[in-house]
Write a protein that binds this DNA or RNA. Sequence first.
DNA 1: CATTTTGTTTAATTATTTTCAAACAAAGTT
DNA 2: AACTTTGTTTGAAAATAATTAAACAAAATG
Lengths: 292, 292
Amino acid sequence: MKPYQINELERLTGIKAHTIRIWEKRYGLITPLRTSTNRRYYSDDEVRKLLNVSTLLSKGHKISKIACLTEIEFTNELLAENSLLKSNNSYEGLINDLLKSMLNFDEQSLESIFQLSVTRHGFYNTMLHVVYPFLNKVGMLWRIDEAETAQEHFATAVIRRKLQAATEALPKAINKGNKFLLFLPEGEWHDTGLLFADYVIRSKQHESVYLGQNLNQESLLKVLQVVKPDYLLLFYITARPIEEIRKQLLLFAGHNEITVLVTGTPSLISNLDLGVSNVVCLSSVNDLFDYL
Amino acid sequence: MKPYQINELERLTGIKAHTIRIWEKRYGLITPLRTSTNRRYYSDDEVRKLLNVSTLLSKGHKISKIACLTEIEFTNELLAENSLLKSNNSYEGLINDLLKSMLNFDEQSLESIFQLSVTRHGFYNTMLHVVYPFLNKVGMLWRIDEAETAQEHFATAVIRRKLQAATEALPKAINKGNKFLLFLPEGEWHDTGLLFADYVIRSKQHESVYLGQNLNQESLLKVLQVVKPDYLLLFYITARPIEEIRKQLLLFAGHNEITVLVTGTPSLISNLDLGVSNVVCLSSVNDLFDYL
DNA sequence: CATTTTGTTTAATTATTTTCAAACAAAGTT
DNA sequence: AACTTTGTTTGAAAATAATTAAACAAAATG
């Protein structure tokens, strides 16, 4: 893996460069290697670690306490906060089975578990209560270095195929519902959730224009002049300044007759306080389902 | 659109920074705006322009001649080289219909044209002779500033859905063929072609492990220890030093019993001369089809 | 074979980023 | 109220990246 400079680390984690430095000095939290000319460089491991520190911070832990934890205690706190333990009844087994199949790149097994879940709980519940928690867990495993990027790619590819096939199989809308425009802003690459939203919207007989990942602002604004949707739906997952999000949402909301539905990482979207009536923060896809 | 510095422009186009400067000085080919402190910054328009210059160069045009062309002549040369005019018989009409639908974000129309083509020419021929040229044409329209990123996103999303639904509908392989590992290396984001390759491979009853876009080298190497495929299939589309590609391919090919199938931009993969027997360059998906 | 075209190399100047230490300020704790 | 924790600000030195001009060298052209 290519090494990151401190500024890239800031971009990836959303933690300011001088804060990263002072943590290093005061607590020795993350002690990066140096180039021959004394510049810090960080590996994937350190990105992971810092992301995890950031998570614990956002959950109310103090940096001084975090710094005192051993590696094992640290991981435990993290798992506790993300409540992977939250053994939500009958789904937990399926999720763990999916994990095992993923780690072995076993597509047949992955598919049959998925199929089993669909017959048992239906497609919607499978996505919401099995696949979603599964993907979260995969992300968490990556964060504690127990899973590879490739394994996540493999699993999401299968899931996406299922999702798109299911969407394709839906009866075509008879042009009665509202028109939704779905996209992820620049820098956002994980569109599996958005594909599920697309499925949900279409299943409720609404019209959907799906634009996918990493769409820049200017391009979107031009689209709005052509498409005239009733709703925008977008996610903010990746770390970035809240102010940037606020500005962008207000810009989108400025178009008459549009309602902006936004969801994503709670710390990014929960305390926006836009003071505008046509921006609605949803906390999950289930909220979207209810909203429709 | 955010402005690019000269180094980012180098990364995006594969043309060295000092070459970009000297072209500016000698021919005034691209005259970027400057910051208040005299640094060059480039917009999307200039990225496009430089990509196009690069294309003409690779087709044997001289930089001095290119510099003399008017904007219109320039576009004409470009279109001629990319032989969009190559009106390959009965497909041309369908392609243009798709374009029209895309520009209007008209999914219903896009779908019915696709369906028409499938019934007329079959799924495989539709992908190969309609969708592929269509996507090329879209890329070209973006290059000459006649299409938006969003329109391409919209069209590819529909096509990907069709592709994945078709793949999903294939009868499951009975574990008899070879095992393929499909992925795009770091920095490669356009996996529609790879999805089609996935479809082709599965349709020929081979086994496929699909890992998708932007997979880093280390991660892939770890996968190889678990998955043990007979074949690797990967694309290089985005500009990068040939030497980097060569090194990476040799690394992949170094694993015993593996055949590496590689395709992508002709200028990147045609003159690799690896001197290894287990790396095969394919010039198109049709080559893959024949190969299987 | 001389000339032109073209990209690379060199060297000096300026701008930006990283580094470190120390002071500062807001908030929570004792 | 004094102290602790925590992140930000300030300022100066070092490293990196961008700027220009001029010289260089390989390949194509005449």
